[in-house]
Amino acid sequence: MNCEDAQKFVHVYLDGEFAEEDRDAFEEHLSRCDDCQAMVQFEKRFKAAIKTAVTDPPLPAGLEERIHAALQGESESTEASKWWTWGLRLAPVGLAAGLLLFLAWPTAHHRVQQPSNMPDQATMAAGVIRPVPDSPTAYHPVAYVPSRSTTGSGYAVQQASFDGMMRRPSRPRVSVRVIAPKRVSTDGLMSRWVNGRKVYFGMQGGRNVALFEYNGVGYAVSADVPQEELAEIVRSLLDR
């Protein structure tokens, strides 16, 4: 080993990652090179200085409690999701499809038109409504809720997701999703009464989202339209 190698591998030596024979060779070089010895001393001090400078900060107040509550909510809602998966996987199909057809119906107010590539109801039942696999990549927040909220996970995992997409050249996308209402934390979200029903409004990915429950099924309606207009869409949905 020469000085160049010693400089290159000084961290490996200090981090204790050398194999025994390499370490011996390194130390053998140190024993006859004052410069490298001083360099090792410097690096050792530097490493220690980092460790001393950065100690783990105290846990912020309430973090552990929030995590505990979130985990509790998570394990309960996972239980709940089982019956969602089994009992309600198909139940919302009709409803959601109905909502979609309604949304697709041209109305004077919204001028939402049925696109030519609109799937028929059978196709939707077969393919569009699908359980989201339980993996992190399929972990879609339905509504933006600060994740430090005190209840629930702050996010909803869709057990059945359903995007009714109605596109027109100048028309924003309106999507209706079926969600498990218990999984959505509505803390901090603005709510208002629409047709005698409490509807929560939030943001997700820059789009306004309205959350409401209807016959025990949760719905998230989102569109990139102003909140007022979204409320109108929800109102007309609930009118039916």
Partner: peptide
């Protein structure tokens, strides 16, 4: 140390622990 921001750090820890639990 990763986020260099206390609020971000709390969010990150909470999200990571939930994901780890899942």
């Amino acid at each position: 140390r990763l986020t260099t921001d206390e609020n971000d750090a709390q969010d990150l820890v909470q999200e990571a622990t939930l994901r780890a639990f899942r």
